[in-house]
Nucleic acid binder design. Structure first.
Lengths: 195, 195
DNA sequence: CGTCGATGTATCGCTGCGATACATCGCGGA
DNA sequence: TCCGCGATGTATCGCAGCGATACATCGACG
């Protein structure tokens, strides 16, 4: 499962939790947040927003935007989306989940992005789940490589080597994060942090 | 542009260039080749194969596979796909192209995978195109980060930092490849290579 | 005053992904 | 002996969502 819209639900709720926004702005933030190379399409975003409104998690507000000269002016004003209280509950609920879906590729990024608002126990569970997921993939990959090594030309071999190295580095990064997490996390250690 | 099927066209042609294969096997190889985390669906592969057959690049051969005991046995035998001579020409044509599409994310991987069969000039052009594409992305990313740095919490910051570092490493990798390429490439220096 | 690029909302066609169905094979265990 | 199960294998269907496009307003710049 884990449709694109699932990722979107958490991300949108999270972004709007900080401040109300309209679609265009939301889209830019989402792309930055998710590190999407491929741009997120409006054909994905707007239907998703409509769905969230229909489910009662978002409210649409129309911000007046009239031409200084007046007249009838601003037809088609911008639409500002805002979290309802149900939306806030839903966000908290999603943040509390730490199942397999939380550490699949795309979901992980979003969950991580909101770690500052996430419970420490959940954070750790997600990081560890993600790590074992990656390690598992790594094993499989190494095994496959082993089986076909002698059949490969220099370029293919280099490509595989590079892929393997990236994956290993990813695991090491996670391990450091887990370690930091266990001794208090980067966010809020006992003493208050500056700004 | 650059639909999934475009990537598939080159990849399929390239894999079948080495040896005829049936769909199931082809799919496994494609996934390994493209480093696809998300599995390539048959709903993508089979229609694509049909299209290639219709365009005359592939020929379908049915390999008999009857039960030892005989009988009517092998209904629905496996279908072996094989490159036609037009297919070979098409493959060579695609390998010779070095346009922007060759160094976009997914296309680049496939092109790289067949570098051993690619002309040295084209190889270099693709590598350099890819590099400047990545550098460009990097710049944008850095600028965006600069603009929002102080608004970010520790976790988001760490995520961005990690993304940036990965991208930088990717560029360095490409630079090494370009360098190697300029002094003769890993594949075929003057002397002949074993096997 | 014109126009150009950024901001902004919205929809439509078609690609291709996930799920599923169906069939045969070799294997290990009751 | 034969049953079940997982791997091998071909095939299609629903529908999510991506790319393209249309349309409108804005500020900036010459």
């Amino acid at each position: 499962m884990t449709r694109r819209s699932d990722v979107l639900e958490l991300a949108v709720l999270g972004l709007l939790h900080d401040a109300p926004m309209h679609g265009y702005e939301l889209r830019k933030r989402l792309i930055a947040l998710l590190g999407l190379g491929r741009a997120l399409s409006y054909g994905t975003l707007y239907p998703s927003l409509k769905d969230l409104v229909a489910r009662g998690y978002l409210a649409e507000g129309t911000a007046e935007r009239r031409a200084p000269g007046g007249g009838f002016g601003g037809r088609r004003g911008r639409i500002v989306y805002e979290l309802t209280s149900e939306g806030k509950e839903r966000f908290a609920e999603l943040l509390g989940q730490a199942g397999p879906s939380s550490w699949e590729d795309e979901q992980f990024g979003v969950h991580f992005a909101f770690f500052a608002q996430t419970d420490a126990v959940v954070r750790l569970r997600i990081l560890e789940g993600r790590r074992s997921r990656l390690v598992e993939r790594l094993e499989q990959f190494r095994a496959a490589l082993q089986r076909t090594r002698e059949r490969l030309d220099a370029y293919t071999l280099e490509l595989q080597r590079h892929g393997l190295e990236s994956a290993e580095r990813e695991v090491r990064w996670l391990e450091e994060l887990i370690d930091t997490e266990r001794r208090g996390g980067p966010g809020r250690p006992p003493g208050p942090r500056r700004r």
